[in-house]
Simulated scan of single mutants.
Amino acid sequence: MALQKNNIKKYPKREIQLFKILDGRIETIETIPAKYQDLTFNKLFGYYGSKGIVLKEETFEKNLKLRNKDGEYNMLAQLLSDNSHIPLRVSIFEGKTKSAPLFSVREFGNNCILYSLDSLLQYGDVLNIIQADETDRVVERKEVPLFDNKAFREAIINAVLHNYWASGNEPMISVYSDRIEILSRGTLAPAQTMEGFYLGESVPVNEKLSEIFLQLHISEKSGRGVPTIIDTYGKDAITFRENSIVVTIPFNRLNEVGKKVGKKVGNSDVDRPILNPRRQTILLEIEQNPYITKHELAEKIGISTTAIDNNISYLRQNGFIDRVGKTKGGYWRIIEE
């Protein structure tokens, strides 16, 4: 009893919430009704099938606890449905704060949450530029990623898994010029302690969703997510706010993006200019697909083909890319630093 009193003094809000959960007075994704009841689950069946697991039409709703006590589809069912009606966005800013111009917004939501999560993780590979470290080079140059992919992956999975979906708000991913911030709504699970959190003791906010992630091998019970982030970036990478938790993934830039000293273009030594976010994105798309067309670039980035022409010309003139072969059938080549 004394221990419980001490906990109430240290973490009054969380302890009160725990009592309410035990009392059945706190809404969870299993109790709160879905905003939409005309739900379908074809993608859910497909995702399970891709993992070698067969869902049975007559029992999957009960086994996955997709209905509340009143027989309505719950918030968990909405998340797992073919259209969750929940946006999951990655906002990219040109500077270090949200006061900087918004460069682009990538949408990954309004889908089965399992597929949305996969898309978010794949987009991390697009963002994670591989840099060439020529320092002390003897034979082979060292390739250095912009950020640690394992820490990024754990942060994204944790944000989706432990987000307080019952609040009606989704996680928020913001990309700045020097870091990525991954925000999940809510705070620690009521039964969790700060010490246990940092040690990786797993106490899920969304219990059934956690079971599903484990079943599909998306996450593990080992609790290595937070320790992986801390081992890479330290405790300061995790910030607790009143109603959210933010993980910061800093960028490890060898040089400013686009800057190169002593690079030969033609017959003269010149410094490469620093690229703005739009030209960085064009380079990323070309790196992913050297055969991409200007029309496809315009569609992906959301600008006109004229704007693409202007940016491509800039990149060619400043020695970032060149064209190999003819307009039709040729491909883009990124000029290494």
Rank of each mutant, 00 (worst) to 15 (best):
L127N: 05
Q215D: 10
I8E: 07
I249W: 01
E170R: 10
F152Y: 06
K9F: 12
E30L: 07
P204M: 10
G302K: 02
E201K: 15
L64K: 15
K260L: 11
P250D: 03
S104T: 15
L22K: 12
G302R: 11
R333C: 04
I292A: 02
N267C: 04
D70A: 15
L254C: 03
K294E: 07
P171K: 03
I180T: 14
N111G: 05
D133M: 14
I282G: 04
V205F: 02
A189W: 00
Y291D: 10
N128E: 08
I308A: 07
L39E: 00
I286R: 09
N252D: 10
K9S: 05
E337M: 11
I303D: 15
H162D: 02
R278V: 07
V265P: 02
F197T: 04
Y47N: 08
K208R: 15
D136T: 05
E61H: 07
S119I: 03
N267R: 13
L64V: 12
N289M: 04
K10F: 03
V257I: 08
R278P: 05
T232P: 08
S50W: 06
A155I: 11
I212E: 04
V247L: 00
E57T: 08
D133Q: 12
L209W: 05
L18W: 11
E57R: 11
I312S: 01
I180Y: 09
K263Q: 07
R316Y: 04
N158C: 05
I21Q: 05
S177P: 09
V226C: 02
G71S: 09
A166Q: 02
I282K: 03
N318P: 02
